[in-house]
Simulated scan of single mutants.
Amino acid sequence: MAISILGAAGIFVLPHSYHHASVAWHHVTALGGIELRVPASQAGDAQAILESIDLSQSRRNAWLRAATGILLLIWIGIPLPAGGLFARRAFPAAEQTVSR
Score class of each variant (00 low, 15 high):
V13I: 13
L14K: 15
L14V: 06
L14Q: 13
P15W: 00
S17N: 15
S17L: 07
Y18K: 04
H19A: 08
H20R: 10
A21V: 11
V23W: 04
V23E: 02
V23L: 09
A24V: 11
H27F: 11
V28G: 00
T29F: 05
T29R: 10
A30R: 10
A30P: 00
L31C: 08
L31K: 11
L31V: 01
G32I: 05
G32E: 04
G33V: 09
G33K: 05
G33A: 06
L36E: 11
R37Y: 12
R37D: 11
V38N: 00
P39M: 02
A40I: 14
S41T: 08
S41W: 07
A43W: 07
A43N: 04
D45L: 10
D45Y: 00
A48S: 14
A48P: 00
I49E: 01
L50A: 02
E51I: 06
E51S: 09
E51W: 07
I53H: 01
D54F: 04
L55K: 08
L55G: 10
L55H: 12
L55V: 15
S56T: 15
Q57G: 03
S58W: 13
S58G: 01
S58I: 14
R59L: 10
N61A: 15
L64W: 08
L64S: 11
L64C: 06
R65W: 03
A66P: 01
A66R: 15
T68H: 12
G69W: 03
G69E: 02
I70A: 07
L71W: 07
L71P: 00
L72W: 06
L73R: 03
I74L: 13
I76Q: 06
G77M: 06
I78N: 06
P79L: 08
P79H: 04
P79I: 11
P79Y: 04
L80N: 14
P81L: 03
L85V: 09
A87S: 08
A87P: 00
A87D: 06
R88V: 07
R88A: 02
R88H: 04
R89T: 07
R89M: 03
A90L: 14
A93P: 02
A93H: 05
A93I: 13
E95F: 10
Q96G: 04
